[in-house]
Simulated scan of single mutants.
Amino acid sequence: MPIDAAKALAAEPRTGEISWTPKDVQLYHLGIGAGVPATDPDELRYTLESRLHVLPSFATVAGGGSPGVISGLSMPGVEVELARVLHGGQALTVHRPLPVRGTATATSRIAAVHDKGTAAVLVLRTEVTDADGPLWTGDARIFVRGEGGWGGDRGPSTRPAEPAGPPDRTVERPIREDQALLYRLSGDYNPLHADPGFARLAGFDRPILHGLCTYGMTLKAVVDTLLGGDVTRVRSYSTRFAGVVYPGETLRIRMWRQEGAVRVAVSAIERDDAPVLADTVVEHT
């Protein structure tokens, strides 16, 4: 069996040092669409080194793509083809604001393996600490088509209830034709997002946008729209990737205020509001 759940769960964690600079933070922000308009003071918080703040979702690429989907496929007990892999969801807990420059230790392990029948879901957990203590914890849900059916634990089946009533705010965010090509420079070089031939092999008409790019664009929209542009208010952020996004499309981001949280739904306008992100929650102070 290409996925040996027992071996994957029993494997020793992988630990390594990661580091990042203001340039890495700026590149990430540009990769998720920051800097438009280029002279807007609110956008300069993401692009100008003298005013730089770090959007918490930068944690998903800190250190040049610190452990994510591709690295999870190299863990013991996991031998699958990249073309059958999709990023199923992402959760992030921020223990304190991310510095604009840092060196930290990242420890990763397979925290869970779920048997969904026609697919397997791996949960890759990464815990990051620096000299001052814990910085963040991230869970990447890796969906592997055709690898289920061994009779293992199916995992959680409950999902958050849909938010009631009309959204408190709705914004639209255009995606550049070259957005995936820019975003991948932060460390995720999966050819699915750049190579048309590989995309067709994986079942798509053309390269798709990184799910984590949509993830970052959405968090930025929430911070800018409902949290006063204050990135330090974010405490956690989780989502399920419900559909793909193609470069050149427009995201519709709907937001509902709740006590201590914002519920979010994201869709692709050009495809009749096809769902993109679901079960999305930003917890904040």
Rank of each mutant, 00 (worst) to 15 (best):
G64E: 08
P247A: 14
M1A: 12
R271W: 12
V262R: 01
R154M: 11
L227Q: 02
L277N: 05
I3R: 03
V244E: 14
F241V: 11
D24T: 05
P196C: 07
T285A: 15
H95L: 11
S57W: 05
S71A: 14
F58E: 01
G211H: 06
P41M: 09
E270D: 13
Q26N: 12
G63N: 01
K23L: 14
V25N: 01
V113I: 08
V25E: 00
A112Y: 01
V266M: 11
D4C: 07
R96M: 00
K23S: 15
S74A: 15
H284A: 10
S66A: 15
R173C: 12
M75P: 04
V281N: 09
E177P: 09
I142A: 06
I70N: 06
A91L: 05
P37F: 12
D230H: 03
A161E: 10
G68Y: 07
A274H: 11
L30H: 09
T250Q: 10
R141P: 07
P156F: 10
H210N: 03
T239G: 05
T232V: 13
L98G: 09
A131R: 12
H193I: 00
A180H: 01
D279N: 02
V121L: 06
G63E: 00
F198E: 09
T214P: 11
A221S: 05
A83T: 14
D188A: 00
R141C: 10
D188H: 00
R254F: 11
A140E: 06
